[in-house]
Amino acid sequence: MKIVVLVKQVPDTYSERQLSDSDHTLDRDATDAVLDEINERAVEAALQLKEGDGGDSTVTVVTMGPDRATDAIRKALSMGADAAVHLSDEALHGSDAVQTARALAKVLGTVEGFDLVLAGNEASDGRAAAVPAMVADVLGLPALTHAREIAIEGSTVRVKRETDDGVTELTAELPAVVSVGEKINEPRYPSFKGIMAAKKKPVTTLSLTDAGLDASEVGLANALSSVTSSQPKPPKSAGEKFEDEGDGGSKIAAYLVAQKLI
């Protein structure tokens, strides 16, 4: 089986994230960048499927992002993915979700004969939680999202989808797009051997033209929506703080009464 995993490099959620003043896009230089955690789970799911069928499958990682996204690719390759495709072009900066979905669909078109596309259900920066389904729509493929369990049976994929609303069992014929949720698995740590092997694995870098895209289809200037202003919310300032002297609970109760909260 040919599996493709969509991954994304995001600002570390443990760091202070910022929007740039000039164009209101994510200030990628201001923070540490990491492979999004949910994507590690997507890579893990792909590797488990590969191991489950005796290793006959191939796992290709696809990303779109600036040059430094190669770090995210290396992480996925050192976990055990076989190859990577990186769409990297200045013109992509500021692309919105619709443009991104269309561009990713084009890149997927360069991966011959894939059976399954795996992705994270929601990136920790954009949080649109829609791109995997949007990519599926562009490609005319079924989307099985927020998977907690994935099973492949012949040419069919079955998924247990878990969201706040409950659990839904879904099925579709391959090829299909599946996005994974937090509960799917615990991603492995890359081994030393894996890290060394990753250095020799093939990474194809595509420009817009290579992917069959035109600069007018992507980027901030051509985006379907624009952020017109952004400002940091004034930070909440600290209020009163005191040491508990045995009456801390009573003092909180008195505060809640004074604020008419109880």
Binding site: G239, E240, K241, D244, G248, G249, S250, K251, L256
Partner: peptide, 27 residues
């Protein structure tokens, strides 16, 4: 957390929380 708290209590939650619970229940 105290930097954004309107009211901060430096203390043991196992003492403060039950006392608060009791006060609210009493009210």
């Amino acid at each position: 957390i105290f930097e954004i708290a309107d009211l901060g209590v430096v203390g043991d939650l196992f003492k403060v929380a039950p006392q608060l619970q009791e006060e609210i229940a009493k009210r």
